[in-house]
Design a protein around this nucleic acid. Structure first.
Lengths: 158, 158
DNA sequence: GTTGAAAGGTTATTACG
DNA sequence: CGTAATAACCTTTCAAC
């Protein structure tokens, strides 16, 4: 874990919101020269603090107006079975996020679908046709109240 | 919903993975000139297909090694109460994502925390101290198998 | 309407103090 | 770290399709 100073944290907070800000604009906001900002960002990328810089596409504008969250429980928690399930989730484009969790379920998955019919096909393929899936529970998203990957950058202990 | 051709979809698929690709690099990959790619990206931004371009920060590198997923059920589903809860989630930095859902819960929340103690404080503040929260269920994330906001860009009917 | 090429302005990147 | 030089890139214009 890299040790970041207040400048780094400010820069991260800014680029997490908008990665298109120029080094000069960042410099104005954090009180540093453009080249200093640029150097810091390069280091943060190399250190793996900045994992990626990505464009966020609005799903509904590309015909994917449904978002689902699914809790999946497997038959038995064997490493081999867990790994196979992880791999299939990673390889499936409509799965946006997949988490392996403790608690009353084994996996929580967030995915997009064009419509209910295509989601039904998904459940058939990945859940009903998979004997390792003991049960699953679907939540249909009515409102994406907050969607992001942003991590808080204040140094508070929260 | 904008109608996108195969070039647009290819461009979106690429910039969803890496928003730092130059117009020239994009041009090579999709078979268009750099200026054509640039024009298309500008339109996709203006049309709202590209909502944002953001840096993804690895939570564990900034001291947030815990990710939690929480199902929250409210006492009663009154619009006023729902809205108040949404606002508080949007205003809280440690909440990365919040979805209002149908099914056995009202909200599903994804958040990061420094440690269990700080998560306990979070639950106290937002769940126990909130009389509108009837119950909540926490899943501790053991593995972030797949994390992203990427939307599939193939034109298949899935 | 679209494209590609060439112009100029801006920004990223490196070298140096 | 900042300043300054260079290189790369973005952005617009324009002719042609």
């Amino acid at each position: 874990m890299a040790d970041l100073d207040a400048f780094d944290r400010k820069l991260l907070a800014l680029v997490q919101e908008n990665a298109r800000l120029t080094a000069e604009q960042l410099g104005e906001r954090v009180g540093l020269s453009a080249s200093a900002c640029h150097r810091r960002l390069r280091r943060l990328r190399e250190a793996g603090v900045i994992e990626a810089e990505i464009a966020v596409v609005a799903p509904e504008t590309v015909g994917r107006s449904l978002t689902m969250i699914v809790e999946v429980s497997l038959e038995r928690e064997h490493p081999h079975i867990i790994d196979a399930f992880k791999r299939s989730m990673r390889a499936t484009p409509e799965v946006m996020q997949c988490y392996y969790v403790t608690g009353d379920a084994d996996f929580i998955i967030i995915l997009t679908a064009r419509d209910m019919k295509s989601y039904e096909r998904f459940t058939q393929r990945f859940f009903f046709d998979n004997p390792q899936v003991r049960k699953f529970r679907t939540f249909v998203v009515m409102d994406r109240t907050k969607v992001g990957l942003g991590v808080p950058m204040d140094d508070r202990d929260d």
